[in-house]
Design a binder for these strands. Sequence first.
DNA 1: AAATACATACCGTCGTTCGGTATGAAATGT
DNA 2: ACATTTCATACCGAACGACGGTATGTATTT
Lengths: 217, 217
Amino acid sequence: MARNKHPEETANLILDTALRLFMEKGYEHTSIQDIINQLGGLSKGAIYHHFKSKEDILAAVTDRITADSNRMLQEIRDRKDMNGKDKLKAIFRESLLRPVQDEIFTVAPDMSSNPRLMYSILKETMDLTVPDYIQPILEEGSADGSILAEHPKEVSEMLMLLTNFWLNPMIFNSTVEESCRKFQVLDQVLQGMGLDVFDEDMKNRLEELTQIYREHQ
Amino acid sequence: MARNKHPEETANLILDTALRLFMEKGYEHTSIQDIINQLGGLSKGAIYHHFKSKEDILAAVTDRITADSNRMLQEIRDRKDMNGKDKLKAIFRESLLRPVQDEIFTVAPDMSSNPRLMYSILKETMDLTVPDYIQPILEEGSADGSILAEHPKEVSEMLMLLTNFWLNPMIFNSTVEESCRKFQVLDQVLQGMGLDVFDEDMKNRLEELTQIYREHQ
DNA sequence: AAATACATACCGTCGTTCGGTATGAAATGT
DNA sequence: ACATTTCATACCGAACGACGGTATGTATTT
């Protein structure tokens, strides 16, 4: 294939294709050759020019996934017109309600048989999202009195583990009913911690997303 | 190598070696040849006679790990002299206090860079331990009035995720202080759910295990 | 001319397969 | 009772195809 004047476009094309295949077939069952075949004209040399290994592609892929979500998190974190608890609630609302989710849940990657991708996203969440966004918000909430969290780091980790991981129907392969019950249980737990951040809208949206996911297998 | 009259011994030898290597080097970085080299005399054919694939070895390995733990769970579950909550407490106590844990934490597998083994154990826990042991105990506790859990399956899942996964220093690479804070946070959450099942002994033991783990890297 | 964006041929290793041998217990024959 | 045959099983090791990765070459841009 002809050389591209804007090499980042090529890199992005590789990542697009890789992400699609990783979600369809799983990371381990996607070969470099698979990516090349779906790429149309590009060769192995091109891939290894832009990325140094298959693992590196996975890292870049998860980076791109979370980068998008992190822009939203940053916006909410930096607002001056909300207290900590409201920011936390806004984050959960946005995470669920943003329309991008439909797309993701429609592609319907079966994360439960894709441990590498799952783990990579979880690790990014724990190493980046938690310390950069969730923990600061909890600390702000502690300072302004809207949240009572003695150990913000640990509470943030737990929050993300429960909401982004356990509550995610793609990861635990939940039915609509299970998603519903998980939401209820989690809501009670959060209320017990003084974090009444869930509402009816979110519950309905979670149901809807679970539905979308299960329809697409 | 000469033919073994008791083939299960050979299979167990393979599993012993495989587990050791999986924990030392990680599942993905352990080759079948690595296992053969450490096995002393046995050949590739022998391995593929006893196991149908490398994945199959991983499954057998995790089976053996959880089987031991499940025997203890079964004993407690079937006791007639305890109510549900006491059984739950007994399970957490035993899980932490049993001396086998020293051994495991001394070998100190870095699960955080071993997603396949980690995932395999998590899946066994969710698919087997939860429905067979934890959920029945919660239901018993619901019936005898010692526990208030509207959705036993979901509460069980959450419990196991938080105690066996999040609280495990091998998985989240926690320091002693982090382990301590996690324990505190989790204790409060559980109390909020009417599950005061943690005590000072457990906290000290968790500290001790975290210490052991970190000493061995 | 130097650097970059790709192509291509090739390498070592991997998981897996498969034809084969050795062994021993059960079935059969004497 | 012992000898012979049968047959499933434990194990061997060469070979295979696919894999991730590299070395080197070439064309294009700067």
